[in-house]
């Protein structure tokens, strides 16, 4: 019943690997950038707050598919040479996801008691030390469930990179389907793969929620 899938398994799994890689790069870049974006959004310095807020509002009000599309077609004009779909997709995802992670973390930062920050200052810690050892870890732990949810969304969204011809999982499945004409079987396989991996991630995420030390 999965004959077409089995015949093309290496090719399909190659696409799955591209999807996993794209997700990994998007998160490895998007979360650290999101940490900074969140800090910018609570900054009292206007020259930090306004540009960051502009960036967040701009990106969050554009569909992801357009960000991927525009970046791919605009970058060559700016840098003077065409860009490969994979790095282009990675950068688009980092730019896009950082705004979402940034807003999640902004809420996390704002939930940290002002007193805990002042306790840090009163022992002589600098702004950077207080932010790094107190503000970010507390916010991150508190927001971990939302961060994991957003990571799963990122993973699911990677298939949108098909618009620039990136041969990721869904794209490769569509190619196979053009030859084999077994749509239900092939896209059923894709759905099952996403279902299993996302479900496992959400179970892991719930474990984190339970394991977290209480009281904050």
């Amino acid at each position: 019943m999965f004959d077409a899938v089995i015949r093309n398994l290496p090719f399909l799994m190659g696409g799955f690997w591209v999807t996993v890689k794209l997700t990994a790069f998007a998160l490895l870049g998007g979360i650290p950038l999101g940490i900074l974006v969140g800090l910018g959004r609570i900054s009292k310095k206007r020259w930090v707050y306004y540009p960051v807020t502009f960036y967040v509002n701009l990106i969050r009000n554009i569909p992801l598919i357009l960000v991927i599309f525009w970046f791919y077609f605009v970058m060559p004009i700016l840098v003077g040479r065409p860009m490969d779909p994979f790095p282009s997709a990675v950068i688009s995802f980092i730019i896009f996801e950082a705004t979402y992670f940034g807003e999640i973390l902004r809420a996390g930062y704002q939930s940290v008691s002002k007193g805990q920050i002042e306790a840090g200052y009163s022992t002589g810690l600098s702004y950077i030390q207080t932010t790094r050892h107190i503000l970010i870890p507390i916010a991150f732990r508190r927001m971990l469930p939302s961060m994991i949810t957003q990571s799963i969304v990122t993973y699911q969204d990677t298939s949108l990179a098909f618009v620039i011809g990136l041969p990721e999982f869904v794209r490769r499945t569509a190619i196979v389907d053009n030859l084999e004409v077994r749509s239900i079987q092939l896209f059923g396989f894709v759905a099952i793969m996403f279902l299993i991996t996302c479900y496992i991630s959400s179970v892991v995420s719930r474990r984190f929620e339970v394991k977290r030390e209480g009281g904050y």
Binding site: A119, G120, S122, T123, L125, P137, R141, E213
Partner: peptide
């Protein structure tokens, strides 16, 4: 100048010991 607050303001993600050693180690 040490300061002690009404609501304690311990760092919730650190043990008592970690709370105490943070500033001596970093500063």
């Amino acid at each position: 100048i040490g300061m002690v607050f009404q609501r304690f303001e311990l760092y919730p993600h650190m043990t008592a010991l970690q709370n105490i050693i943070l500033a001596p180690m970093k500063v």
